[in-house]
């Protein structure tokens, strides 16, 4: 009997995120039944897609027991790079005036490459210079924002929002295949790849091992330097892709893009069940973590509640999630 009770409790704890998500949807739907529609679900998934890709990248770092504050600005820089390389030939204000129209994979890859470069930089600073990840990536965050602003302010653009993007590129954000938005398909593919990497490969096991217990991992022969470099690089690639998608979704880019996304991603990871201490985390949980925040911001606007309340509720959910995480952890010990 007692055992049974405990099981229900731990079950509730393990699935708290899904319980909260369902409760949220039910409450909003009761206030405004129109909320339960395909279009709303599609909108929320489309708005979540970029955040999912950012959170997937961030998840690698959190699972490996590290932290990354540079993600949001990397999204911003990537969005600028992608948009500047994806303009139509006759754009009214062209970033690179003599650039021909490029195939759409070029801006996407360029954005991802920029992300990987800064990812490698983060990895080197953290593992070789031994700068605590929190501070190392805070530094990178500033460096990247500086570069973004410089790039954005280059002549002839001089800080004008980038526009006139190629139709094919914009379709990455706004188009759909068989009624499913392309951007959602991309996000799902990223999730699939991350899931395979984390659960089906040696690399995944090593990342969990490093995050679970760094010393034990080192002693058992795992190359911690390599793992850190790889996790930051994968994260960088994700941020780069997310930036390209954000530019495609909004058909524009400025240096303000991506601001604050890193904290949202970290919050989504933690709420989605990643342990702050590292070594724990699932793709499904992080997905739910992202969705919960987007349901919140979309849903509260939907029923006409001030955006300021969204922050209050968001904050409460984060605190609740971490409190739960700490208790789970204490229970294990």
């Amino acid at each position: 009997m007692i055992k049974n009770k405990l099981d229900t409790k731990s079950l509730l704890m393990d699935y708290a995120i899904y319980v909260i998500l369902t409760a949220l949807v039910v409450i909003i739907a009761v206030i405004s039944p129109k909320f339960l529609s395909i279009n709303v679900a599609k909108d929320i998934l489309m708005q979540s897609a970029v955040r999912i890709v950012v959170a997937m990248g961030c998840m690698f770092i959190i699972i490996s027991g590290s932290a990354d504050l540079s993600g949001g600005r990397m999204v911003g820089l990537a969005a600028l790079i992608a948009a500047s390389l994806a303009q139509t030939a006759n754009a009214s204000l062209k970033f690179w005036p003599n650039l021909p129209e490029l195939p759409i994979f070029v801006p996407v890859l360029a954005a991802m490459l920029a992300g990987v470069c800064f990812g490698v930089f983060n990895g080197l600073v953290v593992s070789k210079l031994k700068v605590p990840a929190f501070l190392a990536t805070l530094g990178t965050q500033m460096i990247i924002f500086g570069f973004s602003s410089l790039y954005f302010n280059m002549e002839p653009n001089s800080s004008q929002p980038l526009g006139s993007l190629l139709k094919g590129f914009r379709n990455l954000g706004g188009g759909s295949i068989l009624g499913i938005p392309v951007i959602v398909i991309i996000a799902l593919l990223v999730m699939l790849v991350v899931w395979i990497l984390l659960t089906k490969t040696c690399l995944g096991k090593e990342i969990f091992a490093v995050g679970g217990n760094l010393e034990a991992a080192r002693v058992s022969g795992i190359n911690v330097f390599k793992i850190q470099l790889i996790t930051y690089s994968i994260a960088g690639a994700c941020y780069g892709l997310a930036g390209a998608l954000e530019a495609a979704r909004t058909s524009s880019a400025t240096s303000a893009y991506g601001s604050g996304y890193e904290l949202d991603a970290i919050a989504s990871c933690i709420v989605g069940g990643c342990s702050v201490a590292g070594g724990v985390g699932t793709v499904g949980g992080v997905f739910a973590g992202v969705i919960i925040f987007n349901v919140l911001s979309y849903g509260l606007t939907f029923i006409g509640i001030s955006p300021y309340w969204q922050n209050v509720v968001k904050g409460l959910i984060i605190i609740g999630a971490v409190a739960l995480d700490v208790r789970k952890y204490a229970g294990k010990k």
Binding site: S32, K34, F35, S37, N39, V40, D43, M46, Q47, S297, Y298, G299, T301, F302, I303, G304, P307
Partner: peptide, 8 residues
């Protein structure tokens, strides 16, 4: 935000 307002 407009996407959300439009749906409702």
């Amino acid at each position: 935000q407009v996407a959300s307002i439009l749906q409702s």
